[in-house]
Amino acid sequence: MLVVDINNLWVQYGKIKAVRGIDLQIPKGEVFGFIGPNGAGKSSTIKVLATLLRNFKGSVKVNGLDVRRQPQKVREQIGYMPDFFGVYEDLTAREYLHFFAAAYRIDRTKRKAIIGDVLELTDLTHKIDDPVDGLSRGMKQRLALARVLLHDPDLLLLDEPASGLDPRARIEVRELLKALKEMGKTILISSHILHELSQLCTRIGIIEAGQMVAEGSLEDIFRKLSLKRVVHVQLAGDVDSAVDRLQQISAVDSVEAQTDRVAIKLREDEMSIEDLHDAIHETGARIRMFQPEAMDMETAFMKLTEGKTA
């Protein structure tokens, strides 16, 4: 069953088209990472799902409920955490959670137990009577996560949950998100801290200038990008003639002689890296260094995006 079902979503602010025809389907229990540069349209997409944007085109459904037609019902299904932490500075953590428990119309008799549970999950039980304003940034983020869990929503919409956190707080939030993943929550999480998502997400979508440029599991995306993997090679002897010979290899897309090395662009679907090593050796060239370019999230991101904004 699809928890999120977005078809041809368009969001426009005045003349600026923030989102241009995005399609996105997230099944139950999946952790979907939304990656993109600032201004790419991540927050706009999340805001549409959170029923916070009126002006959009396309079909957006949460648990089969139309966001445009049934926003009240959708609100009961989602937990939204914005990229900033809104503070009621006059409340304690207990009052803050009771405030939102009342706003989510949780039965009075159940509130205390639920709040105890979410505080335990977020490891904030000892801070229950501290003023919210006095908590550290990391604790505030954990409190915000506790808040979104109060009404046990099916879908968590987390917009940049780790932005502005120090490394320790970031790890704490990441561990908390892993726990939520294990609890079977469906999570849509946006971030531009790429390795943070790679450890957490079952699927990612890379968005740029309002368009999805890649979508799939991490392996899928790496495979797609690996089609033209760059391999750096240092050769002994006459490099110029070696370059000519390398260009004759069928799976080699291009060869570029650099100051101290040769960069070979390989069509990896036609030849594996190991076979390329052998092929180079067979041309008579003597290999001093052989280094395939590492494929990680940052490379994928840089390869797929051009730094454009909507």
Binding site: T51, F85, G86
Partner: peptide, 14 residues
């Protein structure tokens, strides 16, 4: 000002 309106708006309160 306190950036709480968005959060409040996603609750079931009309």
């Amino acid at each position: 000002l306190h950036q709480t309106l968005d959060v409040l708006s996603t609750t079931p309160l009309t």
